[in-house]
């Protein structure tokens, strides 16, 4: 217990294969970006889960407030006209 502070936390994103977007897979501790990438390789890709890794300092991630979920995400609910199923078109025309 020689140190009071642990290495900082990083969020890890993996691209599974070419053509896919990077996806959040978890987090880890590392002192710097280089070691964060190395640790991410050891921790999250032991079975070929990825071909590309992003690491981002956790403190750099800003998140929306779960209590704002309603005001933030409800408005589209009454905008059904944004969905193709809103429109009545002849069925046989492959629209």
């Amino acid at each position: 217990m020689s140190e009071s502070d642990d290495w900082p936390l990083w969020e890890v994103f993996l691209r599974g294969r070419r053509g896919l977007a990077h996806q959040h897979v978890g987090s880890l501790h590392a002192p710097d970006p280089e070691l964060a990438l190395q640790n991410a390789r050891d921790l999250y890709t032991r079975r070929g889960e990825g071909i590309s890794i992003w690491v981002v300092r956790s403190t750099e991630v800003h998140a929306s407030d779960p209590d704002d979920q309603g005001p933030l995400f409800d408005p589209p609910a009454d905008k059904a006209y944004r969905h193709p199923t809103f429109y009545r078109v002849p069925e046989d025309l492959q629209l």
């Binding site: 217990m1 020689s2 140190e3 290495w7 002192p31 710097d32 070691l35």
Partner: peptide, 15 residues
Amino acid sequence: DEEGAWVREAARAWE
């Protein structure tokens, strides 16, 4: 934990 302390400290110092 104790024997690994210097590695963690060195990595932090380097950073």
